[in-house]
Simulated scan of single mutants.
Amino acid sequence: MKHIKEHFIQTHQSQPELLGLIAIENSFAYSPLTEGLDLLLLAIVEQPAVQSIEHVRIEGKHVLIRSVSVGQLEQWMASGENKSIIQWIVRGEILLERDSRISDIRERIIQFPDVMREQKRFVEFSGFLRSYLQAKHDYEGRNILDAYSNILTALHHWAHIVLIEEGQHPELTVWRQMRRVHPGVYKLYEELTVSPETLEQRVQLVMLACEFTVINKMKDCCSLLFNIMMSREEPWSISELQEHERIKALHVDLSLLLQRLVKRSLIREVAVMAASGDTEALELRYMTLAV
């Protein structure tokens, strides 16, 4: 593998747009971390290449070369869209680097600053809320298997929130982490998946626990949104919030979050005259109670 890495160092070091090259080796018969190939090369560039992904074979080894811009990398880290990106950067071997950009990104991930935690917690809570409410809807409709599937997803998001609050990045093997970090949530996972009770009883038990968590964690997990809304006195439209620089790259269900925050009396809904001048359909805007 050493010769293969040296080959790609030679072929990439002359590329002026390249900021860094990271190598992740596959130590298993199949590893989702390297997407099933023997070696993954992450080429980080200022601007994305025309072809962002490539499979090649060299010396009998299958190699995946993935090119990604710094902007896309930052978006992945904030949104959690790419579950492997944190492991790629932290565990990967830096083969090439210019101006310490990659080392700086790695150090920031390891430090896990409050700004990054706040974003990731917000994203995970959005997923948690959506999955929990869908499970509740399925349960009330007597679609127990669907309710089970969605409440299990909600439990995964809950586990991620707990890990983020502990200053840890959720790994691909999240339940092994949870067994060490938070035995209580891990116990709920066991109750849902291996308890001798009926499936309906298991789903109902975890749904009750999730309902309690929604109530207790909503304010803290939505601190990113509160801080944005408190940055001015005027109420915000949903489009303004959606396009805010700290939210627009995140995959969150903002409409659902706003409505639940209103129902919990954590923010206020204000009806104003729409820009179109339509006096029948008033535009809804949102503001914090502190304003």
Rank of each mutant, 00 (worst) to 15 (best):
K217P: 04
T173D: 11
G184A: 09
L199Q: 10
R268E: 08
V252R: 00
A249K: 09
I164H: 08
V181S: 01
R232N: 09
E240R: 09
E245P: 00
I228F: 11
L250Q: 04
K248I: 11
M273Y: 15
Q168G: 03
C221N: 04
M230R: 14
K248C: 10
C222T: 08
E191G: 11
E243H: 10
C210S: 13
L188E: 02
V206L: 02
H182L: 12
P196Q: 12
L241K: 00
L257E: 01
S237P: 01
P183E: 03
A271M: 15
L205K: 08
K219M: 01
M178G: 06
T193Q: 03
E190Y: 09
D220C: 15
L256W: 11
L224V: 10
K187L: 11
S195Y: 01
E233Y: 07
E269N: 08
L163K: 06
K263Q: 10
W175L: 01
L192T: 05
P183C: 02
H251F: 13
T213K: 09
L261C: 08
V262N: 01
A209T: 12
M218P: 07
Y189F: 05
D220R: 15
K217H: 10
L188P: 01
H160S: 10
M207A: 08
S231P: 10
R202F: 08
R264K: 11
W236Q: 02
S231H: 15
L205R: 08
A249E: 11
R246Y: 15
F212P: 05
L241R: 00
L199Y: 08
L208A: 02
R246W: 13
T193V: 04
V214M: 03
E269S: 12
M207Q: 08
G184R: 07
V206W: 01
R260M: 07
A271T: 15
K217M: 13
S231I: 11
F226G: 13
E171G: 03
V194P: 08
C221R: 02
V185N: 05
S231K: 15
V270I: 11
E166S: 08
R179G: 00
V194N: 07
W236K: 07
D253V: 07
N227Y: 10
I161W: 00
H244W: 11
K187G: 06
F212N: 12
E245L: 06
L254G: 05
L163W: 00
S237D: 03
Q177Y: 00
T198L: 15
T213H: 09
E200K: 09
Y186W: 02
M207V: 11
L188V: 05
L250H: 02
M218C: 02
E234K: 13
L261N: 01
L241I: 01
E166L: 10
